[in-house]
Amino acid sequence: MHRRTFLRTVSAGLGAVAFSGAVWHDAAASLAAVSAGESPYGPLGAPDANGMALPAGFTGRIVARSGRSVGGTIWHPAPDGGACFADGTGWIYVSNSEVPLIGGASAIRFRADGSIERAYRILSGTTLNCAGGATPWNTWLSCEEVFRGRVYETDPYGLRAAQPRPAMGRFKHEAAACDPDHRVVYLTEDETDGCFYRFTPTTWGDLSSGRLDVLCGAGGDAVEWRPVPDPGPAVLETQTRHQVSAARHFSGGEGCHYANGVCYFTAKGDRKVWAYDVARQTVKAVYDGGGTLDGVDNITGRPSGDLYVAEDGGNMEINIITPDGVVAPVMRLDGQAKSEITGPAFSPDGTRLYFSSQRGTSGESAGTGGITYEVTGPFRR
């Protein structure tokens, strides 16, 4: 990636975060009663040839299938968490593979017109790579959802070898969200009694060392952070989530998304979307069921203040949660009841949404039926 492109990308990203910050911060305080309502895009239409039900004005296509060649590379099984990165006039979509032993991650490079230029592996030899998160310095954090799992920092451009980041903890990792304002990384844990963590690097931009804290209760919605004594415990020693007695626990931590002042994260066991407000030092549920959204999982957002939440099961929808408290479906996959939606991520210009159906129409546990999609339309910026 050229230096000029890198600087332009970072500047654009920071501008978007700054714009969205007030929206997210206000939403954390005001989204007390999210309820089903009318989508800003209108109702879903009939399923298209690929089984996607979309609002009027939106179109979809399949960009990759597990086990089949895309851009000269066999696309991985069980596609999971993903993110997009700018690359000159085009962009890259990165996707994890949630299978044992050979998991890792792959990338698809798109040209400016949306055609696929090539695909390639960026991480191999890891296990059950579930979600993760993008960094402001354009790397992808691929997280292992396994006992004593690691975070791997990978290069979406395929130029540098992936590096494990053990200082970020050895536990059943799910997602990561970078907070450039406070120079920390938030981490979720997919256990029935999982925790919510904060990693503070010794040097921002270098994740090789730092301090791991766990979120603890301080009464009501108020919370505080306490250090994890041993972030990389031996197999038989006390695991991270049990090392601090005051730690808050969330059932099945999943997706994680930060926008200048608020970090949203989901818990599928709780069936909630939680919001951690940095300034107020509070955590509260901004979605607690009662709407069209079920099986809350991966999450992403837009500078407009809209959240997009993918369903693990449910009726296979991606739902929008607007700043004024409306939850509504923006996409549904028919005929895939044994799968889950993973890896929602927007292209750098915000006009294309990428995501996968991890097991597709086959519902195979090995994930060989995975399908990766693209939806194009007038998404709110």
Rank of each mutant, 00 (worst) to 15 (best):
I299E: 03
D270V: 10
S97K: 00
P180G: 12
K172R: 14
G210Y: 00
S106C: 09
F171T: 10
D113F: 10
M1C: 11
Y197S: 10
T342R: 00
G217L: 11
L187M: 13
K284P: 00
I299Q: 08
D270S: 13
H182S: 15
T342F: 01
G269Q: 09
V309Y: 02
A234L: 14
T282V: 12
E189G: 11
Y276E: 05
D26A: 14
D80L: 03
V17T: 13
P303Q: 11
T200P: 01
G15C: 10
W140N: 06
F171H: 12
P180R: 09
G269W: 10
G194E: 02
T127W: 12
F110S: 03
A366R: 04
D288E: 15
D48T: 01
P348C: 10
G305D: 07
S209M: 07
V151Q: 05
G350D: 11
A162G: 14
T89G: 08
V273M: 11
G81C: 05
H182Y: 09
L7A: 13
R148H: 14
Y120I: 11
Q243V: 08
L215F: 13
G360A: 02
E98I: 04
T351K: 15
M331D: 00
G104S: 04
F171K: 03
D324K: 07
V146M: 09
G370W: 01
D206G: 07
A32L: 15
G219I: 14
V214F: 10
L123W: 02
N138A: 15
Y264I: 08
S251N: 15
I116D: 05
P229E: 09
A28D: 12
G255P: 04
Q239A: 13
G82N: 04
G114E: 10
R302P: 04
S142F: 02
V278P: 00
V283P: 03
F379Y: 15
A36K: 13
S356G: 09
P231A: 09
E153P: 03
H182V: 12
T240R: 06
E254C: 00
S356P: 02
T9W: 09
R3Y: 12
C130W: 00
R111A: 15
R61V: 00
G269F: 08
E153R: 10
A218M: 11
G125S: 04
D80K: 03
V286R: 03
F265Y: 04
P47Q: 08
T342Q: 05
N319F: 09
L333S: 02
F171D: 01
F171P: 00
E364Q: 08
A246H: 06
P47F: 04
V214P: 09
Y264D: 06
P344K: 07
A234C: 05
V17M: 15
G104N: 07
V278R: 10
A112H: 09
E317K: 15
Y354Q: 06
G104H: 01
T139Q: 13
Q163D: 01
A16S: 14
H173G: 08
A64F: 02
R160C: 12
T240M: 04
N96E: 07
H182C: 13
D349K: 06
V228K: 05
I299S: 04
P348N: 08
I318L: 13
P231N: 12
I318K: 04
C178M: 13
D26Q: 14
M168C: 07
S357M: 07
R65W: 01
